[in-house]
């Protein structure tokens, strides 16, 4: 319980630091939101008026706390760039509302694919005494690790979309309308994000298992009369999973980043394009919220990994 409390404090502190860092970054990097909105032909009076409206005349510290206070009250602020109609700016919540879930679902889907494919693959690979399989998997994983996700996305689109017609490139159904169909459309993008990570994880698990198989307790297990299968699943696997769990936790952030890239390749309406254009337009309320969201999700996953680690390794919880 005390542990959970500590983790929670860490989580809040991290979010706070990240928000401050992003805010600071937009203070420092060159470019002005007012010029970016009004264009270069605006009069100084118009600029001053807009500046006033956006609250940019306040000192930065005050601006920051104003913004944070809003978030805590559930008000994510308004976009500087997009407007709902002539008189009203677009609220950030509305802007990202239906885009963020697409990206997060894509990331989650690839993570599940990584787990479902890499773990059995790693175990089979470690168990196999077949040199041919060993060589094939070695080359295959090496190659998949080397190919960048976006290029893999293009290959997948060509092969499964255009040649084999497994899916319609560019097709999409909203997750609110038909969730199973939505997941269907996410499958190939998710696979593109997942393949390099699957290769890494499978390799990692295999090596970890091979290392564990030389451990003394494995000899003890054989000495009891355990079959190889029993030694593998009853003793080696759990011990071998410990470093793999840490590794999986570390690649979560990469998977989210990979999803943002890949959704552009497959034309999915995620946050990728919005994020890029918002950075270009100095639309920092949008960027800030997106980054905070992603940070929150990533930290949450780290937290879950930490708990999982404690479940697997009894030695941790007592230190």
């Amino acid at each position: 319980m005390r542990y959970l409390g500590k983790k929670l404090i860490t989580l809040i502190m991290t979010l706070f630091l990240v928000s401050a860092a992003v805010f600071l970054a937009f203070q420092i990097i060159p470019g002005d939101v007012v010029t970016s909105i009004l264009g270069t032909e605006a009069t100084p009076e118009m600029e001053a008026k807009l500046r006033e409206e956006l609250g940019l005349t306040e000192p930065p510290v005050k601006q920051y706390f104003h913004w944070i206070g809003g978030i805590l009250r559930g008000d994510l602020g308004v976009s500087y760039r997009y407007s709902r109609n002539m008189n009203e700016m677009m609220p950030v919540a509305e802007l990202i509302g239906d885009k963020l879930p697409v990206t997060l679902w894509l990331a989650a889907f690839s993570f599940v694919l990584i787990l479902l494919i890499s773990l059995p693959l790693g175990v089979i690979w470690a168990k196999s005494a077949n040199p041919a399989l060993d060589a094939v998997l070695g080359v295959l994983t090496q190659a998949s690790m080397a190919i960048p996700s976006f290029f893999l996305g293009i290959l997948v689109t060509y092969l499964f979309g255009i040649v084999l017609h497994f899916f319609v490139p560019g097709g999409y159904v909203s997750y609110e309308k038909d969730f199973p169909a939505f997941l269907g459309y996410l499958f190939f993008p998710a696979l593109s994000v997942a393949i390099p990570k699957i290769a890494m994880t499978a390799r990692f698990l295999r090596n970890s298992m091979l290392t564990q198989m030389g451990a003394d307790y494995v000899r003890t297990a054989y000495g009891k009369g355990c079959t190889r299968r029993r030694v593998m699943y009853g003793h080696v696997l759990r011990n071998a999973l410990m470093p793999v769990v840490t590794f999986l936790g570390m690649i979560v952030a990469e998977i989210v980043a990979g999803s943002i890239v890949i959704e552009q390749v497959f034309g999915l309406p995620g946050i990728g394009r919005l994020l890029v254009s918002s950075v270009n337009n100095r639309d920092f309320p949008v960027v800030e919220i997106l980054i905070l969201y992603i940070t929150f999700v990533v930290i949450l996953v780290y937290f879950l990994v930490d708990i999982l680690y404690r479940v697997i390794d009894p030695r941790i919880s007592e230190k």
């Binding site: 307790y217 000899r219 297990a221 003793h235 759990r238 410990m242 697997i312 009894p314």
Partner: peptide
């Protein structure tokens, strides 16, 4: 065995 520290499975 010689090593009682490592001859038992640490996670069981």
């Amino acid at each position: 065995f010689q090593e009682p520290m490592t001859s038992l499975n640490p996670t069981q």
